[in-house]
Amino acid sequence: MVNNAIKPGDACLLHGMAERLGADVAAAVNAGEMTAAELSNIVVRCGQCTKHDDCILWMLEHQGAQQAAPDYCLNTQELNYVRAVQSGETSH
């Protein structure tokens, strides 16, 4: 059985990565650009990642705005979508 409970730190890692990519996932939920369930799913996916230490180090080494997430990020597609919608690059 897979435990999909959100663990302490999962949301922090997700929000840290989102911030660096210029994707405000909380604002996306408030604006109806993604559902609360979708946000919960990407937090859970972050928690299932096996690269938490690498992620923390990457974020420490990459302060400020970044154009791309590291290759191993499981939420790259979703975060890029939120960034694109919020910057007006795509319609939703």
Results as ranks from 00 to 15, higher is better:
2 V>C: 11
2 V>R: 15
4 N>Y: 12
5 A>Q: 05
6 I>M: 10
6 I>L: 10
8 P>E: 01
9 G>N: 07
9 G>Y: 03
10 D>Y: 13
10 D>I: 11
11 A>L: 12
11 A>F: 05
14 L>M: 11
14 L>Y: 00
15 H>D: 11
15 H>A: 05
16 G>R: 02
16 G>D: 03
18 A>Y: 09
18 A>D: 09
18 A>W: 03
19 E>W: 01
20 R>D: 05
20 R>Y: 01
21 L>E: 00
21 L>D: 00
22 G>Y: 04
23 A>T: 10
24 D>P: 06
25 V>D: 01
26 A>T: 15
26 A>I: 11
26 A>K: 15
29 V>G: 04
34 M>D: 07
36 A>D: 06
37 A>K: 04
38 E>M: 09
38 E>R: 09
39 L>C: 15
41 N>K: 07
42 I>A: 05
43 V>P: 01
43 V>A: 07
46 C>L: 02
46 C>H: 02
48 Q>D: 11
49 C>E: 10
49 C>S: 12
50 T>N: 14
52 H>A: 10
55 C>T: 09
55 C>G: 05
57 L>M: 08
58 W>E: 08
58 W>R: 01
59 M>K: 09
60 L>I: 00
61 E>Y: 01
66 Q>H: 01
68 A>C: 08
68 A>K: 04
69 A>K: 00
72 Y>P: 00
76 T>W: 04
78 E>R: 07
78 E>P: 00
80 N>L: 13
83 R>K: 15
83 R>Y: 02
84 A>I: 01
86 Q>H: 09
86 Q>F: 08
88 G>L: 15
89 E>T: 04
90 T>L: 12
